[in-house]
C-alpha cells in the first residue's frame, strides 16, 4: 500500500500546529458533530444513533463492570488458544512446505484456494466436533489463523538470502543451529506479518462464533446488546473491541519489529 505522502514529513514545527494534525482534528470534530446532530434530529429510530454522552456513559459503565472483564477474559483465552494452536501448526506446516519445493507445489494450491473461503461456514462442523463450549470457538479461531501463517512462513523461507545459508553452512552449523541462527531470524518479518494477519482473523473468527452460539465472551455481549436493543452499550462494546483488535495487531507488529528498517 502507498505510504503517507510527503506532506507529513515536509512540514516541520509544533505537532499540534501541523496541517495534517489540524485536518485530522477537523475531520474528527466534524464527524462527532454530525453524529450528535443526527442523534438529536430524530430522523432515525430513537437510539439507533444515540447521543455521544449516552455512548460515553455506557463506555464508562462497561469498563467499570466486573462482568465485562470476565467476558473479555474468556474471549482473550479463546483468541490466545486459537493463536497458539493455529499459529504453531501454521508455522510448522509453513516450514515444511517452504523448505521443499516439491511439497509446496503439491499442497500449497489447496491452501491458496481454502484461504479466501469464509471460515465461519465451518462453525457447524466445529460445533459437532468440539461441542458448544469454548472448544468450537477456539477451533474456528485456529482454522482462521492457520492459513495466513502457513502461507507467510512458506513464502518467508523461500525469500531467505542464499548467502546467509551458505555462511551458516561454511561455519558447519548443525540443523538446529541453522534453524535458530539463520532461518528463524531471516524469516522473522514474514512470520510476524503472518501472525499479525492470523491474530486479526482469529479475533474475527472467535468473536463471530461467540455471536452465533455462546453464553460468554465479548461476541456474546454484543449479540445480547442487540437482542435487548441496548444500543449505547453495543456501541461501547464495538469501540472497546476495535481498540483492542487494532492495539493487539500493533503490539504484535511492534514485538516483531515490523516496520523498522533491518
Amino acid at each position: 500500500m502507498a505510504a503517507t505522502g510527503g506532506i507529513g514529513r515536509a512540514v516541520s514545527g509544533p505537532a499540534l500546529a501541523h496541517p495534517v494534525t489540524l485536518v485530522r482534528i477537523a475531520i474528527v470534530a466534524a464527524l462527532l458533530l454530525a453524529w450528535e446532530a443526527l442523534s438529536q434530529s430524530g430522523w432515525l429510530f430513537r437510539d439507533v444513533v444515540p447521543s455521544l454522552w449516552k455512548i460515553g456513559g455506557a463506555l464508562g459503565d462497561l469498563l467499570s463492570s466486573r462482568d465485562y472483564w470476565w467476558h473479555l477474559g474468556w474471549t482473550g483465552f479463546e483468541v490466545g488458544a486459537a493463536l497458539l494452536i493455529g499459529g504453531l501448526s501454521g508455522l510448522l506446516a509453513g516450514l515444511v512446505l517452504g523448505g521443499s519445493r516439491f511439497l509446496g507445489r503439491a499442497f500449497e494450491p489447496f491452501l491458496y484456494y481454502l484461504g479466501p473461503t469464509p471460515k465461519i461456514i465451518f462453525f457447524p462442523v466445529m460445533i459437532m466436533w468440539f461441542g458448544v463450549g469454548p472448544g468450537s470457538k477456539i477451533a474456528l479461531g485456529a482454522i482462521s489463523c492457520f492459513f495466513p501463517v502457513v502461507l507467510s512462513t512458506a513464502a518467508g523461507i523461500r525469500q531467505i538470502d542464499l548467502v546467509l545459508i551458505r555462511v551458516g553452512r561454511s561455519f558447519r552449523a548443525n540443523a538446529w543451529q541453522m534453524a535458530l541462527k539463520v532461518y528463524l531470524p531471516a524469516m522473522r518479518h514474514p512470520v510476524i506479518n503472518g501472525l499479525r494477519l492470523g491474530l486479526g482473523i482469529a479475533i474475527i473468527g472467535t468473536l463471530l462464533a461467540e455471536t452465533k452460539l455462546s453464553s460468554r465472551g465479548i461476541g456474546f455481549m454484543i449479540i445480547q446488546a442487540y437482542a435487548t436493543f441496548a444500543m449505547p452499550r453495543m456501541y461501547a462494546l464495538l469501540i472497546t473491541l476495535f481498540v483492542l483488535a487494532i492495539g493487539a495487531n500493533a503490539l504484535v507488529g511492534r514485538l516483531g519489529g515490523v516496520g523498522k528498517r533491518a
Binding site: G200, I203, I204, L207, L241, I246, N249
Partner: peptide, 9 residues
C-alpha cells in the same frame, strides 16, 4: 485491519 464484520448487529 479492523474487525468490521463484527458490526453486523
Amino acid at each position: 485491519s479492523a474487525p468490521i464484520v463484527l458490526m453486523y448487529p
